[in-house]
Amino acid sequence: MTFEIPIENNPGKIVEVTIGATADQGGTRSRVVTVGGNTALPFHFFEGRHPHRPVVAMEVFDKTPAKYPDSLREYYQDVLDKPGEMARRCVADFGAEMVSVRLEGTHPEKGNRSAEEAVEVVKDVLAAVEVPLIITGHSHFEKNNEVMKKVCEATAGENCLINYVETNNYKTIAAACLAYHHTLVAQTPIDVNLAKQLNILLGDMNFPHDRLVMDPLTGALGYGLEYSYSIMERIRNDGLAGDRMLAFPMLITPGAECAKVKEARAVEKDYPQWGDEKRRGAYWEIATAMSLLIAGADLLIMDHPRAVEAVRKQIAEIYHSNEEGGHGALRT
């Protein structure tokens, strides 16, 4: 029987979004990062274009998260409270393509650090590494708005990825991104329609499409991953089918989500069937990241160096097979 590859030509295309700015572009980064541009499902090279690989960022903090797991301390213990040095290690030793600066310590209940202190942390990291930055805030609207406004202003022209705005609190931060030329993450809680609605609201503010990334919220493996997985698959399918309000690159956060779960901490002595806890911490992040890459993730914020290494290696291998001019499936 003659076999023909069943090609699906999608009318839609995921928006290409560039983060970071070089000296020519008004920033100080040595390189920029571009995600999106796909015209087919993830890794379906046989039926569409995939001009940019998914990008792996790693995360540093203004304040060490409570219950930071030992499986990560092993790699960062001496630099956990030195975000600049930690960022340098992530990039130079662990292969981070971007760095996320998490400003959780400015939350009124988690340290209440000032906006000025946050700006210092971000500047420290900007000076330490040459890759584009993600600035990650928190859910306390009032304080987060104040901090993000200051950080946007202090990093004007760098085209950072400002992470995040939500439906009930987007105007202030989106306006700051417009004023100081940054890119923005629109976060919604695991729901296609809410995601679309927030993108439309941002569109109403004339927020440019090519500066928008969606975060449909990551559930860690075993903690709601299946919801994130299916919502992301639906968003990507709809985006490719031509729904322009869903055709944005997607951000996921396997690092922060997996660092919170019991499986990242519990030791083998107490849970013999769960196996070696050092490897398990990385495994949990890998499984979360790889499955959500299949569902459509374009940008990943990760924590565990071994997980980053394995995921980047697989992404490179998958794309390499494409770049060599086709893979087995096309040689019918």
Binding site: F43, H44, F46, Q314, I318, S321, N322, H327, G328
Partner: peptide, 9 residues
Amino acid sequence: GNGLGGAIQ
């Protein structure tokens, strides 16, 4: 297929 990319496709 050709590696993981080939197997997925």
